[in-house]
Amino acid sequence: MVGNELADDLMTVAETARLLRRSTEQVRRYLREGELPGRRLGGQWFIDREDAETFARQRRDGTEFLRRLASSDPDPLREAIAIGGSGGADIAGGRARYLRSLAEDAPG
């Protein structure tokens, strides 16, 4: 089906599940939904080792970030409110419109 050299770079769903510490069904769901790149060979899913390792690293980073978030400042912007006045800009209209307030205020 695949040569030995190619096979070394491919992981099965079960191997990927062990790497990600997820169930095989969860890995198949990642594959079906396109979250994890994979390819079907002979009716079975295979995942490039590099893709699986990148996916694992990204999930670890996300998990670590959520852990940090859980213990972060619960009111982090309290001192960053109303620190200046534009004279009546409108950021809801986008960056360009917000910056336009400068031109409208400019003399001449």
Binding site: L77, A82, G85, D90, I91, A92
Partner: peptide, 29 residues
């Protein structure tokens, strides 16, 4: 930006939304 700029058209709404998030226990990033 809307929080920082006291004159922005959305400032009051943004401050209200921020306070709602904080009092509801949301963690912000």
């Amino acid at each position: 930006v809307a929080l920082a700029d006291r004159d922005d058209a959305s400032h009051a709404a943004a401050v209200g939304a921020y306070q709602d998030l904080v009092t509801s226990g949301f963690r912000l990033f």
